Simulated assay, not measured.
Amino acid sequence: MFVYPKPGLLIRDPEKHDLIPESGREVGDGDLYWLRRVADGDVTTTRTAPATAPRVSGKGAASTATDNGSNDA
């Protein structure tokens, strides 16, 4: 079976001792480790969109003040 990590998770392959790439990896069909990862939702057998950073909207963004270098308080 071919597995893909759930977006945002790093899943270690216990046989190869590395992380499953986002592009997925072929693993044993009857391997209990991978069947459990699928059942737990850590990996999926269908390709998913990669995790992306949340977008920041320009609305309501804090304005940045510039420091003019004076120490007048």
Rank of each mutant, 00 (worst) to 15 (best):
P50W: 12
V43Y: 07
L9S: 04
K16H: 09
G24S: 01
P14F: 06
A62H: 08
K16S: 14
A53K: 14
T46K: 14
L9N: 06
A62F: 09
M1D: 02
G69E: 02
I20G: 01
R25K: 12
L32M: 10
P21Q: 00
K59T: 14
D67V: 11
K6A: 08
L35S: 01
Y4T: 00
V3I: 14
L35P: 11
L9M: 11
E22K: 09
G69Q: 06
Y33G: 07
I11F: 09
A51I: 02
T45Y: 04
D29N: 10
S23V: 12
P5Q: 02
D29T: 13
G58R: 12
I20L: 02
R37H: 13
I11A: 01
P14K: 02
R25E: 05
E22H: 02
T52C: 08
E22L: 11
T52E: 05
A62N: 03
R47F: 09
T48E: 15
I11L: 04
A73Y: 15
G24P: 07
D31R: 15
D67F: 10
N71D: 10
T44W: 08
L35D: 00
E15I: 14
K59V: 14
N68I: 12
P14C: 06
R37S: 10
L35Q: 06
G28E: 04
Y33A: 05
D67G: 01
A51R: 07
D40L: 06
V27P: 07
A73R: 11
P7I: 00
A65F: 14
F2H: 13
P50G: 09
D67C: 00
R37T: 08
T45L: 05
R37Y: 12
L10Q: 09
R47T: 05
A51L: 14
I20D: 00
S57Q: 01
A65H: 08
P50T: 12
G30R: 11
N68D: 15
A51Y: 04
N71F: 13
R25P: 10
V43K: 02
D31Y: 13
